[in-house]
Design a binder for these strands. Structure first.
Length: 223
DNA sequence: GCGACAG
DNA sequence: ATCTTGTCGC
């Protein structure tokens, strides 16, 4: 079963393995409970950050929200984000007591040099369908869609459709929505649109707010 | 001029 | 992720 290697070599190997797995496809239903998870780090100029940086992670589903604190596992490096925040995100989701059917993560999924971004990795570890949402793609490319809620355009990586640019709200920049663990690009968009009032899907928005609130209430208390 | 590769 | 500045709209 997948886990969180602590070295670059180990993670790369794990990602290559994850990319070969073919989990049962998951489909969104009206009754599906959508959760979100988000992690933040200390404010201030810190570039890519460093291993050991204090971190606050929040997860939510329905009315429940939980916050856990910990430390970054590594500095940020494109393609190796799991090394920095994988374990903490998992801890936050496991702290939830209410059940969830799908999780929205601020990371890519299939859009990754080894086709196993953090959103996909987290889903495999938790055995839970996931969807990735980021401000921009990691390696995939595609032109923006029309500025109309629900409009989407393909995000392609080496000839494969790995996600979509999705306009979640007119007048705002589109979101990069990623197929991840047990989800395809179309389902990922359905999940995001079904929970979107503002630009960001509500579960992710709430998790982000709670994580930042926790940081504000406890600044530097774990440095 | 360089980089423009998730967070 | 975090920063910065300004603009729009409730």
């Amino acid at each position: 079963m997948p886990g969180w290697p602590h070295t670059r070599e180990g993670l790369i190997e794990e990602q290559l393995l994850l990319a070969t797995l073919v989990p049962e496809p998951w489909l969104l239903e009206p009754s599906s409970r959508v959760g979100g998870v988000f992690v933040c780090f200390p404010r201030g100029p810190s570039g890519a950050g460093q291993a050991g940086d204090p971190a606050w992670a929040a997860a939510c589903v329905g009315e429940e929200t939980v916050v856990v604190t910990g430390y970054a596992g590594a500095a940020y490096e494109p393609g190796l984000l799991a090394l920095r925040e994988g374990e903490l995100l998992e801890a936050a989701v496991r702290a939830l007591t209410q059940p969830l059917d799908v999780l929205v993560v601020d990371a890519t999924g299939r859009d990754h040099p080894r086709r196993a971004g953090l959103a996909l990795h987290l889903g495999a570890v938790l055995d839970l369908p996931t969807v990735g949402v980021t401000h921009r793609p990691l390696g995939a490319e595609g032109k923006w869609p029309e500025d109309e809620r629900g409009a989407r355009s393909p995000l392609m990586l080496e000839g494969d459709l790995v996600g979509h640019w999705l306009c979640t709200r007119a007048g705002t920049r589109p979101l990069a929505v990623h197929a991840a663990w047990r989800t395809d690009p179309a389902t990922a968009c359905e999940v995001v649109l079904s929970t979107c009032h503002a630009r960001t899907p509500e579960p992710l928005r709430r998790a982000r707010r709670r994580a930042r609130e926790a940081r504000a209430r406890n600044p530097g208390a774990q440095s």
